[in-house]
Design a protein around this nucleic acid. Structure first.
Lengths: 229, 229
DNA sequence: TATCAGTTTCGTACGGTGTAGCATCAGGGG
DNA sequence: CCCCTGATGCTACACCGTACGAAACTGATA
């Protein structure tokens, strides 16, 4: 039984890896929202000290980009894609939706200018490949892609907001709804919103999965353009 | 000439108003991005001390909600709307786009669960009123609205990102592009992105205003549904 | 085996954030 | 007149990202 002084300190912890750092960050974001992802917190999660993380990333921004690209891998589908372009896009869209449902913090990264990584690029390439058999030139394909992407972005953002991301701090969801309730009710009463009010009253708003329907309208529009206007 | 002690302090500053606070915050966000909007900064802008702002709002979140509703007023259009539903929606969409161009920080608020205020509700009501003459039931109108809104959200988010919001701190835009350049070039070379690479090389990506075109596809899709599938 | 170079780890510190708690003070109503 | 209500502002706390430099450890070389 030696004294503290002669005993060696704990063996050096197995070296961290960038992958482990990113995985820990993703775990925190999944469980408690993107707001809980701080350098200190992720380090603690790994049993490391704060500044240690800066051996693996240069800035927090980098960590966010790596997180985004990590989950971008989850939306890739195994090739070959369905030959029918609509089926292919529907498949990709479904994946995208699932991934955002699993990692709702993704939508917060959208408006944060995070750099696009290799998996993000692979995803774009897959979307482009859906148009392969159609004989459209690059510009047209790009325009179709843009319209499709824009719809998808809007949809997943709205869905994530409606479902309510895990949040840290701030007012929680039920509480917020409770506060909003009387205000909304007042608006219904006062008659300034004759179209909106009954929709809220009857619960038309919300509780309607418009994913495939809305998407099919966008694809119909593209198809119309495809078949010569 | 009296001494400091006997001279009265500066006359009490004219009382702040909530409107002034919100206007100052919007000004800061327009000029330097949402990241520059801190309680301290907005207070300084008004010549007030930090904690004074908390007489007008309860939390910073409130200030953000008020800012959002402030600019939501800018997207309202004078009634009556064009009788043609497509023309009405196009008008509203154009307004929405202009407002986001003027206040690009709006897109950052989208994914931040800010409460919707009276002007936001008025805006929704105006959009709903576009469907008035069509004889569609509430559920259908709501679905059309959702699809239209989703496309618009995605579009304005993408446009704001492509144009580059004013940012404080962080790497600036040109610098980021310069860093991304060799990485992108490498991807082009290595052949993993046969569809995407030539689009970047030829500049097909970006520099193509797809606003009305993409929107018209969405409206075409809705119109198809309208005319009985 | 002893030394050196290069990484990885981490203690400390700085300047920023939102905001709780309390003291101060002005103006208006009894 | 006084008192009270609400606006104002100081101080302080806990948190953030991260610059800087020292320490500890690893593997390669002499």
């Amino acid at each position: 039984m030696s004294s503290v002084w002669s005993r060696p300190g704990p063996p050096r912890r197995p070296a961290l890896t960038r992958e482990a750092v990113v995985a820990a960050a993703v775990g925190v974001a999944d469980a408690e929202g993107l707001g809980a992802v701080s350098i200190r917190r992720v380090a603690a999660e790994l049993g490391a000290r704060t500044m240690t993380l800066y051996s693996y990333i240069e800035r927090k921004e980098d960590l966010l980009a790596l997180m985004a690209d990590e989950i971008a891998a989850e939306v890739l589908v195994e090739e070959p894609l369905p030959a029918d372009w609509r089926a292919a896009l529907l498949l990709l869209a479904g994946r995208e939706r699932e991934v955002v449902r699993r990692h709702p913090w993704r939508v917060e990264l959208i408006s944060q200018r995070v750099a696009v990584g290799p998996n993000g690029l692979r995803h774009v390439e897959q979307k482009l490949s859906a148009f392969d058999g159609l004989g459209v030139d690059r510009l047209r394909a790009w325009r179709y892609l843009a319209a499709f992407n824009d719809y998808m972005t809007g949809f997943v953002v709205r869905e994530a907001l409606e479902r309510g991301q895990p949040r840290q701090g701030g007012v929680n969801e039920a509480e917020r709804a409770a506060v909003a309730e009387p205000y909304i009710r007042e608006l219904i009463e006062n008659g300034e919103f004759p179209r909106l009010a009954p929709m809220i009253e009857q619960g038309v708003a919300g509780a309607d999965d418009n994913f495939e329907r809305g998407l099919s309208w966008v694809l119909d529009g593209i198809e119309g353009d495809l078949h010569g206007r």
